[in-house]
Design a binder for these strands. Sequence first.
DNA 1: GACTGACATGCAACTTTGTTGCAAAAAGTT
DNA 2: AACTTTTTGCAACAAAGTTGCATGTCAGTC
Lengths: 138, 138
Amino acid sequence: MEAQIDEILKKNQLSVTGSRKRILELFLMSNGALAHGDIEKKTGEKFDRVTVYRTLQTFLEKGIIHSIPTSDNSVLYALCKDDCTEGHHHDNHVHFICNKCGKTICLADVTVPEIKIPGGFLPQDYQMVVTGLCAECR
Amino acid sequence: MEAQIDEILKKNQLSVTGSRKRILELFLMSNGALAHGDIEKKTGEKFDRVTVYRTLQTFLEKGIIHSIPTSDNSVLYALCKDDCTEGHHHDNHVHFICNKCGKTICLADVTVPEIKIPGGFLPQDYQMVVTGLCAECR
DNA sequence: GACTGACATGCAACTTTGTTGCAAAAAGTT
DNA sequence: AACTTTTTGCAACAAAGTTGCATGTCAGTC
Ligand SMILES: [Mn+2]
Ligand SMILES: [Mn+2]
Ligand SMILES: [Zn+2]
Ligand SMILES: [Zn+2]
């Protein structure tokens, strides 16, 4: 794991620092998505709030994590697959949010269907969020 | 329009007040979705910020508007169709967000496909957001 | 291993966004 | 018009996010 973290950071030309290692570790350990608040709680007093904001911003720009849309004024983040890069993301998978436990899961195997859109629109990215009950909660 | 606004409010057993009329008018006039901030700006000094929050909350509960998920810590709201009620919404349509002008449009004719989800999940609601360029911006 | 420029972090101060309790005002009812 | 219920504005607060800057840490070089 330690090695994996280093590898991810170096591959993205980021210097290996305490906060980046810790936050990346949180993503690797968690099987769901994380909100800014989650990370702040889990890192405790270890890092400044501002550092968490800036680290997530950096990860997002580098394509290490991707954001997941929600309807409740929060943004969730999850690890991208290996082949995501700064410009081009490949995280066109469906996300599942459990209405009971709140856990958000990347359904990496479920691809978002590219539907037809009438009118003059030029679609570039498709996102799909499914809410319901997860396996543990149903 | 005045009559239409009154009708919507009365149908939902809401007393007809200045702020509700004005905010409903904004939704009826706009062809896209509105964020809380948009409404605050457009109503100007006319109403307190708290009133806007509470009005949107009320409209949401009554099924007059629905929320649209976004990836940027904001929530967008748009008018529901006539047949949405407190318990049961029928706004299972795709939403389009323009990357250039930022406008968000309800594609009322495009239904969200109900995809198959593996594993023990129990899906209840499907949402789909497409980003790209709108007809004016492309 | 020490030196050094580039970059990351913490702190403080600030802005913006959202929440709550309560008294005053407005809306609906008779 | 009088009364009851609901809505609103205000104030005070809490939470979330931003910015500038001094200090600390990192990665590469000697
Ligand atoms: Mn994902
Ligand atoms: Mn809509
Ligand atoms: Zn669950
Ligand atoms: Zn546009």
